[in-house]
């Protein structure tokens, strides 16, 4: 037997141990108890089946649409939106809650979707930038951002707009100074801040329902 072959065998062994160890500690413990041994054995070899065991069901409403989903516990809400649901309007700028590009509304409150797990959203209502406009008719904040040129590259813009809408709803848009403070969780590297303040002020003063 060549050395190569024996090395490969030991690798295989290690692989199976890893896989078993993984399944043992995985979320699927409950499911495992009910799973026929034949499937379990297959799971050790078949990645597609193994993947099922790693996922957890979760249901939530996204932009008005009820979704029954199955996600890995470690999947963040941001990655769920972007990678699995193709709602790519919400952006990843830092993945650590330090920039605001991923801002969405959960039950009406603005949050950083990069720092919350998808599995934690059971029964929640999520609104992303894609769900803000009323059909073809832009939300007043979207219109104001265009009018006041509240962006340049546009990458932080979905987060800025979601944050700006919430800022008014919270009652934190009563002066330019207050807007600047309460919008500080949304970084814009292009530096469109002055124009964003103008946009938020106009929507606030316009008195439209946001």
């Amino acid at each position: 037997m060549s050395q190569d072959h024996s090395e490969k065998q030991s690798e295989q062994k290690e692989f199976h141990e890893t896989r078993r160890g993984f399944l043992k500690q995985s979320t699927a413990m409950m499911a495992l108890a009910l799973t026929p041994p034949i499937v379990l054995k297959a799971a050790e070899k078949d990645e597609a089946i193994a993947a099922l065991f790693e996922k957890v069901p979760v249901s939530m409403e996204i932009n008005g649409k009820k979704q029954q989903l199955s996600v890995e516990p470690r999947t963040t809400l941001l990655d769920l939106l972007r990678e699995q649901l193709a709602l790519t309007g919400t952006k990843k700028g830092c993945d650590h809650g330090q920039c605001g590009a991923c801002t969405v509304h959960i039950n009406g409150m603005r949050v950083n979707s990069c720092l919350t797990l998808a599995v934690m959203q059971e029964g929640k209502k999520i609104t992303t930038i894609e769900g803000l406009a009323n059909g073809e008719e832009l939300h007043p904040m979207q219109q104001a951002f265009i009018k006041h040129d509240g962006f340049q590259c546009g990458y932080c813009t979905p987060g800025q707009i979601m944050s700006a809408v919430a800022c008014i709803r919270e009652g934190h848009a009563n002066s330019p100074e207050e807007i600047r403070e309460f919008m500080s969780g949304n970084i814009c590297r292009c530096g469109a801040y002055d124009n964003i303040v103008s946009a938020v002020l106009e929507v606030k003063q316009g008195g439209q329902k946001v």
Binding site: R110, L115, A166, E170
Partner: peptide, 9 residues
């Protein structure tokens, strides 16, 4: 502390 988004979480 933090930002309004983080304070909301």
């Amino acid at each position: 502390g933090a930002s309004q988004q983080l304070r909301n979480m």
